[in-house]
Design a protein around this nucleic acid. Sequence first.
DNA 1: ATTGTAATTAGAATAATTCTTGATATTGGC
DNA 2: GCCAATATCAAGAATTATTCTAATTACAAT
Lengths: 142, 142
Amino acid sequence: MVSKAPDSHPAPEIPDEIAGLRMTRQRQEIYRILIEQRDHPTANEVFMRAKDHLPNLSLATVYNCLEALVQHGIIRQVNFERESSRYCPNLREHGHFHDAATGVIHDIDFKPGVNLTDVLNLPPGAVIQDVEITLRGKLVAP
Amino acid sequence: MVSKAPDSHPAPEIPDEIAGLRMTRQRQEIYRILIEQRDHPTANEVFMRAKDHLPNLSLATVYNCLEALVQHGIIRQVNFERESSRYCPNLREHGHFHDAATGVIHDIDFKPGVNLTDVLNLPPGAVIQDVEITLRGKLVAP
DNA sequence: ATTGTAATTAGAATAATTCTTGATATTGGC
DNA sequence: GCCAATATCAAGAATTATTCTAATTACAAT
């Protein structure tokens, strides 16, 4: 394979395979878009950003690639209400704060040492496989 | 109006108005369905259950009524992933545990005295208007 | 009763996502 | 390198949940 062409904006090197998933040109580009601008874009936003570099990419392929990346645990899919799914390369366990005024989505980390079972009354025998925490609100001047 | 026909299952009396919302026959029936069987039904499930009592109810009306109830804070709309919205008459602040094996959704209460800011690193100045906590997992024999 | 407003209905329209099918690309064996 | 097997991609059709539109109906207040 040819080495990556020099490009106007900094382009992180994406390996040919991640977590057992073959990283094709499309998948690389889509993953690159997610890690370069971590603003939780929708599939359609990813599509629009990717078209510059891959002019004959289709939206269906963006969905396919995003799903492949999600399935392999490379990115996460996040849903707010009934809006379009958004995608996020942050693999730490974290929640989201959705600023209602600006629409900006902030990643929210847990304070160290916190365990969900400390704060929630889970049903007996519950084994948690996945956690989704979403806050909606606004940011005021502190 | 005729007094309520005796029915096989207990039917709570629903007032003519709740939280400033006029409770029409359709809204009453839909709200009754939600409080009688608190299993977080979808709009379509509500529709099917309601048809017995209101044979010429339309699905659009179910959506309209559910939205009116949500807007007036009488019920809550909850979303799991990209599935159909589900509706819940539990107004306590609570989360949900989605049992992946059975599909059953359990309401999860916070332990008393817990404050979200104790466990999450919120951005400075964040004012929370709404919280959504969803866990997915399974129940094992304790 | 009449009139105005809100609610309901039925079906069309929309939006996001998935599916289907055929074309392309890639990999591994020879 | 060449070919077969497999994986990926593209284009558009199909699906699903939900919303919208327009017309009808119910209700409330005069």
